[in-house]
């Protein structure tokens, strides 16, 4: 069966095969045998043939030597890549920021801010410059200097959620249906520093500050009424 297949193929290539068979025959030159016998009698071939077959250390180690030479050239000639990053062991240590303090102070600051401005409104009021007080944080330096720095807390203040309220379902406003972000909404690179614990100020402090604010308000109202009265008296 196999033979038949190849015989069929021979039939297919019959023209080509006949052309190949009819090719002119190449003949050896007339002095072929003379030269050959001369070489054999003079033993010219021996040196050449034995040279080819003999093991030569030079030939054997040439590729390895070339590779080694290239490696050495590359090592010494090519400039070493400059590393952009400094060795952390050789770096001047940075002053440690008391981040925990800062976060706690911020929570207290926020509580005070809410209490002083809008009692019922959960939303943060914005200053005239358009910045929330939450955008700032109090930082205690190692030399006990207290600074107010721009906060890089990784939470968007507009979208922060009170987890306790959220879980218990006490918040009924439509705002709670919005999805809050723990870290950030955009693709900005923020490190997640952890959950922020909201510290509610104690009731006594609240009442004390309320009393202060009420007395200030009363004093203001009194002052206003006195001014109005004095102006009425001055009028002819």
């Amino acid at each position: 069966m196999e033979n038949k297949y190849y015989n069929d193929n021979e039939a297919k290539f019959s023209k080509l095969i006949s052309e190949l068979k009819n090719l002119s025959r190449i003949k050896a030159p007339d002095d072929f045998e003379f030269k050959l016998m001369l070489k054999i009698r003079n033993k010219e071939f021996e040196e050449r043939l034995y040279k080819n077959n003999q093991f030569s250390p030079v030939k054997f180690f040439t590729p390895a030597a070339v590779v080694a030479a290239v490696a050495v050239i590359l090592f010494f000639v090519l400039p070493a890549p400059k590393s952009e990053s400094e060795n952390p062991l050789m770096m001047e240590p940075k002053p440690i920021e008391k981040t925990n303090n800062a976060v706690n102070n911020q929570a207290a600051f926020n509580g005070f801010n809410k209490m002083g401005n809008n009692k019922g409104n959960q939303k943060q009021t914005r200053s005239s410059a358009g910045e929330s007080l939450e955008d700032y944080r109090v930082v205690v330096r190692p030399n006990d200097v207290v600074l107010r720095e721009k906060s890089d807390v990784p939470v968007n203040s507009d979208k922060t959620i009170n987890l306790d309220e959220y879980i218990s379902g006490h918040t009924k406003s439509s705002q709670t249906l919005k999805r809050g972000d723990l870290v950030s909404t955009d693709n900005a690179d923020f490190d997640f520093n952890g959950f922020l614990v909201r510290e509610e100020p104690d009731q006594k402090t609240i009442q004390r500050y309320r009393a202060i604010i009420d007395s200030i308000n009363k004093a203001k109202a009194k002052e206003d009424s006195l001014r109005r009265k004095s102006s009425k008296l001055k009028e002819p």
């Binding site: 190449i26 050896a28 030159p29 072929f32 030269k35 050959l36 070489k39 054999i40 071939f45 043939l49």
Partner: peptide, 10 residues
């Protein structure tokens, strides 16, 4: 080709 055939014979 001549050289190769010579080498073959050698």
């Amino acid at each position: 080709c001549t050289d190769i055939v010579q080498d073959t014979m050698i």
